[in-house]
Design a binder for these strands. Structure first.
Length: 656
DNA sequence: AGGCGCACTTTTTTT
DNA sequence: AAGTGCGCCT
């Protein structure tokens, strides 16, 4: 296929965007208006005009969209597209750091995830007995929000938790302690990965020149969800590289991570000599699906100024189904899926959108019981599950002996060693950077069983090949792990080990393996039923950005859930909830099925003061926009009364 | 004192 | 699924 064929598939506005001359641009595009298509065409166009693929960096939100973009450009241009890079901000920065570890002073660092961070905050908070300071999870959220918005702690607290401003000093102490421990142990948290690069770009003209020389063009997808920290990566490069950003203010759903939906509007102020282009024709959905989505935005006081027009024309009205409770809802969805599959539909054409990972669990159970093949995106990630973390802890401490979170986890796997003993061992080896020194010290000063040292040494000998190291680690830990998980799906966990070993084949270094899968998650449910690729997608709305499906179920659109009871104090958060629902509704191509149920007892009970019904987005939903499903909540007939007593009962063994 | 098993609660959203 | 709290055992 030639570039002209590709361009002729676009409409005028898309083509104008894709073939824009060398100028910074912000493309504002509604849901389903061909954002990905335009980015693909832009990249292909640039390459066809002689730009070296290596000099184009595409930044997307998830690894799925990254690989999709590259795949599509390749399918149009073939080998000419070789070397084209698309990645998430995090994996991009990680690659940059790997290109020149010395320039960023990041040799031998271990990337840590949220759970590790929380563990550290827990330790940092531990010494303080004040009951009024927030939980470690909250402090972590404040910390990360402050860094992503590049605000001071004071400004952050004022914004997200004004009632805690008087506690600022204590909270600051906890954060300082976290930061110094993090440095000592050579950890990089998710925010560090971006910040390290951002700091160098800001302070080292040399680094800035070196990096901007790499990129003639930077293409950014989902611009509305980028935050100030991410902007501090783009801005310095924009002096030499040309930015091409695509986004939709109405789909901004990462405010909790510091994104501001206004940023697509302020683009021309922030970037001199830039243009704004708009894509307004929707090719994804039929008009009735867009009618309800448009209606939802119209209800907002914020003027989104969005009216999606379908190029596909009329279609089926969305269905709104009412249920008594979540089990009834899950059962109906499962049975509806089976009905569709029986009449010839493919599983893969169905997507179930949920607000929380937790909410997916009931559906998961229901699918498992009925043998409906599915993938759950946004659920538990393979490398985050307890048994894999156990094994990784041994690999981590070998790769970075100052990693005492790993030491603590590894040591407590052995019988007779609990938190206390482990922490004493960790103290004994504090500051030692060579694994041999750690082993020697522990042998001398503690009474750890020799098998423990054998385990470490065996992994040490295999550390130059990640999959071998993993296999050795599993081998040594298997007896302990079997004991620990024997009543908890041990067979399934055992299968996961083989899978992770396979994933590790592509990697030599342990640290690069861990980095990669930390930033590039594999979900636990992708692992099961590897045989079939025809599966239903169960997905959180936040993970569903950019995704689409012929048939979409949007689950639990009930009072108290949209907006969520937790957001009702803050008008900004309510608006974000509205956008979350908007994203969900606009994923559907042909059929949209919205389910809801009576407010959960949980919501009513834990937030009794809130009137869920007043804020509910569908309160004034015009009935002509949907087909009301028959009320699923038919009450069961009352059970028959128990029979009355009919004489004494004799129980016991039969005597002959 | 420290380890460990058991019952109980508790879930926003992600890199 | 994992965290917390409690009480028993070594």
């Amino acid at each position: 296929m030639t570039i002209d064929d590709l361009l002729s598939e676009l409409n005028d506005s898309q083509r104008a965007a894709a073939t824009l001359a060398s100028q910074h641009a912000m493309v504002i595009a509604g849901a389903g208006c061909g954002k990905t298509k335009t980015i693909v065409a832009r990249a292909a166009y640039l390459i066809s005009r002689g730009v070296t693929p290596q000099n184009i960096q595409i930044l997307t939100f998830t690894r799925r969209s990254a690989s999709e973009v590259v795949h599509r450009v390749r399918s149009h241009l073939g080998d000419a597209a070789k070397g084209l890079q698309a990645s998430t901000f995090h994996s991009w920065c990680m690659n940059v750091i790997r290109m020149a570890p010395e320039a960023f002073s990041c040799q031998g660092f271990t990337v840590i995830d949220r759970e590790d961070q929380m563990q550290m905050f827990k330790l940092a908070r531990g010494g303080i007995k004040d009951k009024e300071i927030p939980k470690s999870k909250e402090i972590l959220d404040f910390y990360s929000f402050a860094r992503n918005t590049r605000q001071s702690l004071g400004a952050t607290l004022q914004k997200v938790a004004p009632e805690l401003e008087t506690r600022k000093q204590v909270i600051a102490e906890v954060m300082k302690s976290y930061e110094s421990k993090k440095r000592e142990r050579r950890y990089l948290d998710y925010d560090d990965i971006l910040d390290v690069v951002a700091q160098r770009l800001a302070n080292s003209p040399e680094t800035r020149d070196w990096l901007s020389n790499h990129y003639e063009y930077i293409l950014v997808d989902e611009m509305q969800d980028t935050n100030p920290l991410q902007w501090s990566l783009l801005e310095p490069l924009s002096h030499r590289s040309i930015l091409f950003c695509v986004g939709d203010d109405a789909q901004s759903i990462y405010g909790f991570r510091g994104a501001d939906f206004q940023n697509v509007h302020s683009f021309t102020d922030r970037v001199p000599n830039s243009v704004v282009l708009k894509l307004e024709e929707n090719y994804r959905s039929t008009q009735p699906i867009l009618d309800i989505s448009n209606w939802l935005l119209d209800q907002s006081d914020l003027g989104y100024d969005k009216h999606l027009r379908s190029m596909r024309g009329d279609g089926q009205k969305p269905a709104l189904m009412q249920f008594e409770n979540e089990w009834e809802e899950a059962t109906w969805i499962s049975e509806d899926l089976i009905k569709r599959h029986d009449s010839g539909a493919e599983w893969r054409d169905h997507m179930i959108l949920v607000r929380t990972g937790f909410a997916g669990r009931t559906l998961e159970t229901s699918f498992l019981a009925r043998d409906i093949p599915y993938t759950f995106i946004g659920g538990l990630k393979l490398l985050e599950s307890a048994h894999i973390r156990d094994v990784l802890s041994l690999m981590r401490l070998v790769a970075n002996p100052t990693d005492d979170l790993a030491w603590a986890r590894f040591l407590t796997l052995w019988p007779g060693i609990g938190e206390r003993t482990a922490s004493r061992c960790v103290t004994a080896i504090a500051g030692l950077t060579r694994i041999e020194d750690c082993i020697a010290t522990l042998r001398r000063e503690t009474k750890l069983a020799p098998v423990i040292f054998d385990a470490i040494e065996r992994v040490e000998q295999a550390k130059l090949q990640a999959n071998h190291a993993f296999a050795k680690a599993v081998e040594s830990l298997e007896p302990s792990l079997e004991e620990k998980y024997k009543s908890q799906d041990w067979d399934k966990r055992k299968r996961d080990f083989l899978l992770v070993e396979k994933l590790a084949e592509r990697h030599t270094s342990i640290l690069s393996f861990i980095e990669d899968y930390m930033l590039d998650p594999v979900y636990t449910s992708e692992v099961e039923g590897v045989d079939s690729t025809d599966r239903v997608t169960l997905i959180t709305i936040h993970s569903a950005k950019g995704a689409e499906s012929p048939v979409c179920y949007v689950v639990d659109v009930s009072p108290g859930s949209y907006p969520s009871v937790r957001s009702m104090n803050d008008p900004e958060e309510i608006e974000e909830e509205r956008r979350v629902l908007y994203v969900a509704l606009t994923r559907a191509k042909d059929e949209l099925i919205i389910t809801r149920r009576n407010a959960t007892t949980w919501a009513k009970w834990s937030f009794p003061s809130k009137n869920n019904d007043d804020a509910y987005f569908f309160n004034s939903l015009p009935s002509k926009l949907v087909t009301q499903g028959k009320l699923g909540g038919k009450r069961k007939p009352p059970p028959p009364p128990p029979p009355s007593a009919s004489g004494p009962i004799h129980v016991g063994i039969q005597w002959d």
